[in-house]
Design a protein around this nucleic acid. Structure first.
Lengths: 237, 237
DNA sequence: ACTTATTATGAGTTTTACTCATTATGACAA
DNA sequence: TTGTCATAATGAGTAAAACTCATAATAAGT
């Protein structure tokens, strides 16, 4: 609350840590990890080089923090996007749009994360995997709820569909990065959602169902409408 | 033809270069790029450290050579796999099987290639992209011939289907790496081929839905109704 | 056998991540 | 306010490793 230095001790330390992460992110994005000097990061964050090492074990740990920070933001964003919808496939569409845009917007940052792969240090790679798993858990949740509701076939394979979803989107995003003229969010979203839907309809095998799925959708929706109506009547208004 | 030292000068130089690449590949795979000393590579390849720098500009160039070598082998293998078949979708299946197995077998080597991303050096990244493009040209060729033969819809989008194909396969391979119990080459091949087929049948739009848009509308309306109901309930009446 | 261009060498240089002895800061008590 | 102490900050110094270069060996051509 003080105008001058409002912070508690903890806050001051956190602010400094954040400053280092921000400085590092900017520099890593501009010049890559190898091209960035630790001394530069320190200078930009307005701390002495030695101080920086009180906050992070080494340069690699700074990169890890940058990447972790990014995954956390991504996860929050994806969760928000999905929570804005109620229907399984509306959620899917929202997640698709969010993921595609986020991946493209932060492409360099995501690529920076690949710096933690194939380092020969298992613990580091595990960290990246854990954040990723936490992120895709949103899809998993969506998928499982879809199964509960009958929107997704009970025998559909979660991991196969998940790989289809994120794999296609990542490659698509890369293409869009390299060929801006191919950037068509709506078209791609429609394509990906349609593919995922078709994979959701039946597990291992491809469907080739015709209007069966349509009428199933209709039946399930009608059931819900009826339930909602009943519910509504039961309220004493 | 000489039993002792048969080589011409050029052959001798090539052999030395190859020795360096092999040594580097082994060490990089074992300890990662950062964990490998250039001196180690030189020792293992039986050349002096200074000599090594006559063949490669720097450590990064050695890594590039290792990666380039790998992409070339992959491309040869994929081409052979596809040439063994005559029908469009038999070729596709052969390519799927080959790619999946190759990616899994050489996963660490592929991950090593990611070391060339996000380095802040555009030229390096371009090299990786060029090799990749050369590799996926096999798919592109397959796709276009399929269109000529009428197996693939004329309005199907090459790059979207290509991203679907390679994206799904890469993510699937990663899953299989991390979860060996999910390794089911045939099942995955079937799944991926089916997805690609369905995407090949018609371009931007997914083919299979007829009344889909109708039920989508219904679903979205139902969702809004349900949300309104929930809202209504939350008012203490 | 001599000359010359090519190839090889490893000790030395430079760069840079990281350490540590020293100093500054701020919270709390007297 | 002043003194004490734990916590935090500093940057000159160290060590490790990529890379250079003056010198030497090798081999091709005459």
């Amino acid at each position: 609350m003080n105008a001058t230095r409002p912070q508690t001790r903890r806050e001051r330390l956190d602010a400094k840590e954040t400053a280092v992460i921000s400085a590092a992110r900017a520099l890593f994005l501009e010049k890559g990890e190898a091209g960035t000097r630790v001394a530069e990061i320190a200078k930009r964050a307005c701390v002495a080089e030695g101080t920086l090492y009180l906050y992070f074990k080494n340069k690699r740990a700074i990169l890890q923090a940058v990447v972790a920070d990014h995954w956390e933001q991504l996860t929050v964003g994806a969760r928000e996007a999905v929570e804005g919808q109620t229907e399984t496939f509306d959620k899917l569409e929202a997640l698709t749009t969010f993921h595609l845009r986020a991946v493209i917007a932060d492409w360099s940052l995501l690529m920076l994360g690949t710096r933690l792969w194939a380092t020969g240090a298992e613990a580091e790679e595990q960290m990246e995997r854990d954040y990723r798993r936490n992120y895709v858990a949103i899809f998993d949740d969506l998928f499982r709820r879809g199964q509960d509701r009958g929107d997704v076939a009970a025998d559909a394979s979660l991991w196969q569909v998940r790989d289809l979803f994120y794999g296609t989107l990542e490659y698509t995003a890369r293409t869009m990065m390299l060929h801006p003229e191919r950037t068509d969010y709506d078209g791609v979203t429609e394509f990906v959602v349609a593919q995922v839907k078709s994979a959701c309809l039946s597990g291992g095998q491809m469907p080739l169902y015709k209007e069966e799925s349509g009428s199933r959708d209709l039946r399930s929706i009608t059931g819900r409408l009826e339930a909602a109506l009943k519910d509504l009547k039961s309220l004493d208004v």
